[in-house]
Simulated scan of single mutants.
Amino acid sequence: MRRSLLSFLALTFAVPAGLAIWQMQDFSRYFAAFAEPSDLLQGCNDVPEAVALAEELRDRALRIERYMETIDRKKAEVAEAESALRKRLAELKSQKGGMRSRQDQSTAAVRSDIEKLVALYDQMNPAEAAAVLTNLPADFAAEILLRVRPETGARIIAAVEPRQAALLTAQMGARSVRKN
């Protein structure tokens, strides 16, 4: 009994609703507000509260429109700034890549020069190399001595006067400590 009553009620409400939906092709026309602000006051001009409310609503609508225009303008400005920043970021990244490649080339050139210089000192007579190294700045001479073959470095230090050899050895030790 209950089920048949529920089915009957469902049909009673569903069929007219279905017909109404079928007849309505465009729902928006039933839900849209078509009244103009001037039409809102039709027949209410003698009620001061209604007139004041209509004016306040009109003022609020105008303020909202101005705010929305301001927001749209600011959105456009932000989008333009973001585009400019992205472009600048791309430029900076490309410049950074160029700088890195130039730096890598420069570092490779310096390493090559140092390797050539070390090879030169490796081939020199230890006494002659000692004479040249004693005239170089101590930190530079210590760097060269650290990079030559150990046997060559030992012969060069042996050929240097003891006081200068002690200074070079201290510089070599200090450089090793700074590296770590």
Results as ranks from 00 to 15, higher is better:
Tyr67Val: 09
Lys93Phe: 05
Asp122Ala: 06
Ile64His: 10
Thr70Lys: 11
Ala154Met: 09
Leu133Pro: 11
Met1Leu: 07
Thr107Lys: 15
Glu69Ser: 05
Ala35Asn: 07
Ala35Thr: 11
Asp139Thr: 11
Ser7Pro: 00
Ala17Trp: 00
Arg66Gly: 05
Ala131Pro: 00
Ala20Cys: 03
Pro16Tyr: 00
Asp39Thr: 09
Ser94Asn: 13
Leu57Tyr: 11
Gly18His: 00
Leu89Lys: 09
Gly173Met: 09
Arg147Asn: 14
Gln103Met: 14
Phe31Glu: 08
Pro150Asn: 05
Glu91His: 05
Arg163Gly: 15
Ser7Met: 08
Ala166Gln: 12
Ile157Glu: 03
Thr107Arg: 13
Arg100Phe: 04
Gln42Ser: 13
Val47Lys: 15
Ser38Asn: 08
Gly97His: 04
Val148Trp: 01
Thr12Tyr: 11
Gly173His: 13
Asp139Tyr: 10
Tyr121Val: 08
Ala130Arg: 06
Arg88Ser: 06
Trp22Arg: 14
Ala170Asn: 13
Glu128Phe: 12
Lys179Thr: 11
Asp113Val: 04
Pro150Gln: 08
Cys44Phe: 14
Asn125Gln: 15
Asp113Ala: 10
Val15Trp: 01
Ser176Glu: 14
Ala131Cys: 01
Leu19Asp: 00
Glu128His: 12
Val132Glu: 15
Leu53Ser: 02
Ala81Val: 08
Pro48Tyr: 01
Glu91Arg: 08
Glu82Val: 09
Ser112Met: 06
Leu62Cys: 03
Val132Trp: 10
Glu82Tyr: 07
Arg88His: 01
Arg178Cys: 01
Glu115Met: 09
Phe34Gly: 15
Ile71Asn: 02
Leu5Met: 05
Ala138Trp: 00
Leu146Gly: 13
Gly173Gln: 15
Arg73Ala: 14
Leu9Trp: 07
Arg86Phe: 14
Glu56Arg: 10
Ala119Arg: 06
Ala76Asn: 03
Ala33Phe: 13
Gln171Tyr: 02
Ile156Tyr: 05
Val78Glu: 10
Ser28Ile: 02
Ala142Asp: 05
Ala129Cys: 04
Arg3Gln: 03
Ala84Leu: 15
Arg155Lys: 15
Ala54Asp: 06
Asp59Val: 03
Arg147Lys: 15
Glu143Met: 15
Gln123Ile: 02
Met172Gln: 09
Ala166Cys: 01
Phe8Glu: 06
Ser38Val: 10
Thr12Val: 12
Arg100Leu: 13
Lys179Phe: 03
Tyr67Cys: 04
Leu19Gly: 08
Ala170Glu: 15
Arg86Thr: 07
Ala76Tyr: 02
Glu91Leu: 11
Glu36Pro: 08
Ala79Trp: 04
Asp26Tyr: 04
Asp139Pro: 00
Glu91Cys: 04
Glu55Met: 06
Ala165Cys: 06
Ala76Cys: 01
